Simulated scan of single mutants.
Amino acid sequence: MREIIFDTETTGFDPKNGDRMVEIGCIEMIDRIETGQTFHCYYNPQRLMPKAAEEVHGLSDVFLSDKKLFKDGAGELLEFLGEANLVAHNAQFDFNFLNAELILCGQKPVSQFRMVDTLAIAKSKHPGAKLSLDALCSRYGIDRSHRVKHGALLDAELLTQLYIELTGGRQIGLGLVSEAAVPQIGDNGSARLAGKAERKQFIAPRKYTPNADELARHKSFIDGIENPIWADI
């Protein structure tokens, strides 16, 4: 099963008020294992960045001024998303912004039926607890020491680990992805990883049917045991 864990950064809280998406980070998983495929891009929102929003994610007007417009990169993003389910924390927020951007550039919005909300999962597992990404990472022992400010790809990486824990758990850091698959994010606005999960070499399974010689040696060994406990059964 293919799933995309993603996060967005925006200029505010509501696209209906003119707020825009300025960053998206996506991580591909197949059968709950990261494949090493990611998508990351910054977008010029064509509006000024409110100070309060910049304090959250650190993305300034100057930084975003030379980034592509969403409409110029929508096809690349949609190709990466494919038909996979989309996992996000407080997913309705991210879906609202993603779909608002798609509609603005004449694209079909993503179906809500593809939404998987880790916040809703966390609420059902930990009612009454703090359910922010930071709080849940602390609860599950996920290292977030490098998270100084919000960042779409960084938060998607943390959410990937959290999603695994919320849905049954799997040992983190099994080394299934090669070092070449670690994303290198620059300031040019877009980075899509081409690395693939490292293919492990497995030894062919042994045929366990004993041959005649093995059976004879086993019988000789058993016959040589004095006062076997199974003799009294």
Score class of each variant (00 low, 15 high):
residue 108 K to F: 02
residue 108 K to W: 03
residue 109 P to K: 10
residue 110 V to E: 05
residue 110 V to P: 04
residue 111 S to C: 05
residue 111 S to F: 04
residue 112 Q to K: 07
residue 112 Q to T: 11
residue 112 Q to P: 00
residue 113 F to W: 09
residue 113 F to Y: 13
residue 114 R to I: 05
residue 114 R to P: 01
residue 115 M to G: 03
residue 116 V to W: 05
residue 116 V to F: 03
residue 116 V to M: 10
residue 116 V to P: 09
residue 117 D to A: 06
residue 117 D to H: 06
residue 117 D to G: 05
residue 118 T to M: 07
residue 118 T to H: 06
residue 118 T to V: 14
residue 118 T to S: 14
residue 119 L to R: 10
residue 119 L to K: 06
residue 119 L to A: 07
residue 121 I to N: 00
residue 122 A to N: 05
residue 123 K to P: 01
residue 123 K to C: 02
residue 123 K to T: 11
residue 123 K to N: 02
residue 124 S to R: 14
residue 124 S to E: 12
residue 124 S to F: 11
residue 125 K to P: 02
residue 125 K to C: 01
residue 125 K to D: 00
residue 125 K to Y: 00
residue 126 H to Y: 10
residue 126 H to F: 15
residue 127 P to R: 04
residue 128 G to C: 15
residue 128 G to Y: 08
residue 128 G to L: 13
residue 128 G to R: 14
residue 129 A to Q: 12
residue 129 A to R: 14
residue 130 K to R: 13
residue 130 K to N: 14
residue 130 K to P: 03
residue 131 L to V: 06
residue 133 L to N: 15
residue 133 L to D: 03
residue 133 L to C: 12
residue 134 D to W: 05
residue 134 D to E: 15
residue 135 A to L: 02
residue 136 L to H: 03
residue 136 L to Q: 07
residue 137 C to A: 09
residue 137 C to Q: 13
residue 137 C to E: 11
residue 137 C to L: 09
residue 137 C to G: 14
residue 138 S to A: 14
residue 138 S to L: 12
residue 139 R to G: 09
residue 140 Y to S: 08
residue 140 Y to M: 11
residue 141 G to M: 05
residue 141 G to S: 05
residue 141 G to F: 02
residue 142 I to H: 10
residue 142 I to M: 08
residue 142 I to C: 08
residue 142 I to K: 09
residue 144 R to A: 13
residue 145 S to G: 00
residue 146 H to N: 13
residue 146 H to C: 05
residue 147 R to Y: 07
residue 147 R to M: 15
residue 148 V to I: 15
residue 148 V to W: 05
residue 148 V to C: 11
residue 149 K to F: 10
residue 149 K to T: 12
residue 149 K to M: 12
residue 150 H to V: 08
residue 151 G to Y: 05
residue 151 G to I: 06
residue 151 G to P: 10
residue 151 G to E: 04
residue 152 A to D: 01
residue 153 L to M: 11
residue 153 L to P: 07
residue 154 L to M: 14
residue 154 L to A: 11
residue 154 L to K: 06
residue 155 D to S: 13
residue 156 A to W: 00
residue 156 A to T: 09
residue 156 A to H: 02
residue 156 A to N: 08
residue 156 A to D: 04
residue 156 A to P: 01
residue 156 A to E: 02
residue 157 E to Q: 14
residue 159 L to V: 15
residue 159 L to K: 10
residue 160 T to G: 13
residue 160 T to P: 00
residue 160 T to D: 01
residue 160 T to C: 10
residue 161 Q to K: 13
residue 161 Q to H: 06
residue 161 Q to C: 04
residue 161 Q to L: 08
residue 162 L to G: 02
residue 162 L to Y: 02
residue 164 I to N: 06
residue 164 I to C: 13
residue 165 E to A: 12
residue 167 T to E: 08
residue 167 T to K: 09
residue 169 G to Y: 13
residue 169 G to M: 15
residue 172 I to K: 07
residue 173 G to R: 05
